[in-house]
């Protein structure tokens, strides 16, 4: 019998990879909401601060979860480039929609890949929360309809 460590993949390997994507999305959102806030007048920044804190908390929770599984959590990138110039309040709202839609996609992928029921419980809760935030920003951006039947799924 060999003493070599098992090379069998972890039973949660696919789930962990999806959680890493959700963590990466949280890092991106924390960064992106700083840009959103900077483009808005002071009196309109409260929802930005709230959303940014939500993503910070989520980032920390995911990092803790992955660490507890012996997985090194992905870190934030050194920098990000904006997908478009953010020069107005509407631009800021559109960027926030992009961030929340990205979050929804990441969590839908977690639901697709998860092997643990508890992870799917987390995923469905976070997906619902991201969609509610996205609706607020779609409204601010003047988009219609503000709701979508399949958040996070392909059109």
């Amino acid at each position: 019998m060999s003493d070599a460590p098992s090379t069998a993949p972890s039973p949660t390997a696919a789930e962990d990879a999806a959680l890493q994507s959700a963590l990466a999305a949280a890092h991106t959102a924390v960064w992106g909401y700083a840009v959103v806030g900077a483009a808005l007048p002071l009196e309109q920044r409260e929802p930005v601060a709230v959303a940014r804190q939500v993503h910070r908390d989520l980032r920390d929770r995911l990092a803790g979860l992955l660490t507890s599984r012996g997985v090194e959590p992905v870190g934030a990138e050194g920098g990000y480039a904006l997908p478009f110039p953010v020069l107005s309040a509407v631009d800021a709202a559109v960027l926030a929609v992009t961030l929340e839609d990205g979050t929804s996609s990441a969590w839908t992928w977690v639901l697709d890949q998860a092997t643990e029921a508890g992870t799917r419980e987390l995923g469905v809760a976070e997906l619902g929360a991201a969609e509610l935030r996205a609706i607020g920003w779609r409204t601010a951006a003047g988009r219609t309809p503000v709701t979508t039947p399949f958040p996070g799924l392909p059109d």
Binding site: S104, W107, T108, W109, L111, D112, A114, R120, G123, V124, L127, G128, A130, E131, L132, A134, I135, V146, T147, T148, P149, F150, P151, G152, L153
Partner: peptide, 13 residues
């Protein structure tokens, strides 16, 4: 699972 979660989120909205 992804579909049920997505539909649920859409209905929350």
């Amino acid at each position: 699972a992804a579909l049920l979660g997505s539909v649920s989120a859409g209905l929350r909205g």
